[in-house]
């Protein structure tokens, strides 16, 4: 299984490099011939260097591969190799240390509180589409939360802003209820589409919080101006609140108004942390090594800049 994935990965890289070596020539004859029908004379126009938008003269000199992005490619390959190696290492059963993340440890406790109080759990997967990593991370956490609510029989309410998130959310929650042997308790309207507009969506959730007073509010995903509107309303409703986002501008609002906040990378680590699956934990470990490499690169840059000789070094990281 793992070897297959590595093979696919290597094949992709070979494909990538082969394309970079063989730029496609789309024009067989780059000269343009114009014929004057009145005199039967013809003029051959040679392509002018630098003029790219003339028909029949474009592209054949421009390499298909964007060499200015080579640094990004190298970093991506390095990053991928480290993650894959640590994933493989984790498969061998090695014990991996993972620092404590209070916000995630409290998820089960918070759902338990809702169960004791006989009130619902509100899960908000953020305001972005399913193609954003923050939303995917939120949906992953939703799966874990749905397992707990299914186990305890706690009502779960998940309002979403995009139809594609609706489909993904319903799938994840249904799967969790089936796995817990509670397929009958699953209601398709646990995950529901409420509004496509940012503040209409916020107003709907705020109204729900004030009417139903959910015991636990979980905000996991991408949030913008509505972050404080949601968190303060939840606070006023007396709910225990756990938030997680990678939007630095919204973190202070969540920290001020929520009981626990997952900051940036903690949101992406949540699925691995909650599931404790070695394969996922291995990826986190590899990520830490890349972070160490970045710290070394930043310190090197600081030292070089202090001696006014960082220009060549900065050029290494420039990408278009």
């Amino acid at each position: 299984m793992f070897q297959n994935k590595v093979t696919i990965f290597i094949t992709l890289i070979i494909l990538l490099l082969s394309q970079s070596l063989f730029a496609v020539d789309t024009t067989e004859n780059s000269n343009l011939t114009i014929t004057d029908s009145t005199t039967a004379d013809s003029v051959i126009i040679q392509p002018v260097a630098g003029v790219e938008n003339l028909e029949n003269t474009a592209d054949n000199d421009i390499p298909a591969f964007r060499s200015e992005r080579l640094n990004a490619l190298i970093f991506m390959l390095l990053f991928s190799v480290v993650i894959l190696l640590y994933t493989r290492w984790a498969r061998s059963g090695k014990e991996l240390f993972l620092r404590k993340i209070n916000g995630l440890d409290e998820v089960e406790e918070a759902v338990g509180r809702a169960t004791e109080m006989g009130k619902p759990v509100l899960f908000v997967p953020g305001l972005q589409e399913i193609d954003e990593m923050e939303t995917i991370a939120g949906i992953s956490i939703l799966g874990r939360v749905a397992h707990i609510t299914a186990r305890y029989g706690t009502p779960l309410h998940v309002p979403v802003r995009y139809p594609m998130v609706l489909a993904a959310g319903q799938e994840v929650v249904q799967q969790a209820y089936i796995e817990e042997g509670k397929a009958d308790s699953y209601d398709v309207d646990m995950v529901r589409y409420v509004a496509g507009e940012q503040f209409a969506y916020t107003a709907t959730i705020n109204g729900y919080m004030m009417r139903e007073k959910p015991a636990t509010n979980l905000y996991m995903g991408a949030f913008f101006a509505e972050s404080l509107l949601l968190a303060e309303t939840g606070n006023a409703a007396g709910s225990i609140q756990i938030a997680g986002t990678a939007q630095p501008a919204q973190l202070p609002f969540f920290i001020a108004a929520c009981d626990y906040t997952l900051m940036g990378e903690e949101l992406y680590a949540a699925s691995a942390y909650l599931s404790r699956e070695p394969l996922l934990l291995g990826g986190l470990k590899g990520q830490d090594w890349i972070k160490l490499l970045l710290i070394i690169l930043i310190i090197t840059g600081i030292i070089l800049a202090s001696f006014n000789s960082a220009e060549w070094y900065l050029n290494l990281f420039e990408s278009v």
Partner: peptide, 29 residues
């Protein structure tokens, strides 16, 4: 802020890689 952004970007890239390679399928339940 930059520290948080760098950490979050690495987290997102690592998660994207795990999803592309089929290691992480939690988003599908």
């Amino acid at each position: 802020q930059r520290g948080i952004i760098i950490g979050a970007a690495l987290g997102a890239a690592a998660m994207a890689l795990r999803i592309m390679l089929g290691i992480e399928r939690t988003y599908m339940g």
